[in-house]
Nucleic acid binder design. Structure first.
Lengths: 101, 101
DNA sequence: TACCTATATCACTTTTAGGTAACTTATTGT
DNA sequence: ACAATAAGTTACCTAAAAGTGATATAGGTA
């Protein structure tokens, strides 16, 4: 009858921000070069993009591969843990899509 | 190759805050009296509780029934639109639950 | 030598979300 | 009279998220 423990929070702490779900969503199709990924996300600023992917990396949802070339080349890819969010991310997208109808 | 429209945002705008998903989640089992619902959400303040349910009402996810008695009695219930989030909410909860293992 | 490239960082400001504590309301039972 | 009740509001404050614009890097090419 009192408080109820609810792991929903743990999930929301990982994907409950403005940019994280979008970045993850675009990585569902496979790994992407940094610049390409950033261009896929409308209106994300330079700073927020880097910050977001780095946090996702820290949380183990995304991996970062750096190629030692100039100019720099960096690729981002979902980890296993990140891929396990696929169903959720697609559901969120589908639900929103149905809203607009 | 450029920006990609993505309705994920529409969904996240509705449930992407600290308290909203929790409140919705607890309403999945059926309508609840205001005070009961609030007690189910750990650590939510009085202000945030009211604010959250009212916004959910405005967004059409929750309905509010007021009984004209003293002391007041108010019940909250998911709307059809709110219920349509059930699968998503449960997935978010399940995913978080598996994290803790 | 100057510039271009892709990725990233830094200092700073603005905006939004959330937290705290006191107060309101209208009736019933004491 | 007045305290208790359930739901909600208000003013104020802090903290977290996001935005802006400038700067760094380092090797290849004009």
């Amino acid at each position: 009858m009192g408080e109820v423990y609810c792991p929903l929070n743990l999930t929301m702490n990982l994907i409950g921000t403005k940019w994280r779900p979008l970045v993850l969503f675009h990585l569902l199709e496979g790994s992407l070069r940094s610049g390409i990924l950033q261009k896929k996300v409308p209106n994300i600023s330079n700073k927020m993009f880097t910050q977001t992917v780095r946090e996702l990396e820290k949380d183990g949802l995304v991996s970062r591969k750096v190629f030692p070339v100039v100019p720099p080349k960096v690729e981002y890819e979902l980890t296993i843990k990140g891929k396990s969010l696929e169903k959720i991310l697609r559901s969120l997208d589908t639900w929103g899509r149905e809203l607009s109808n």
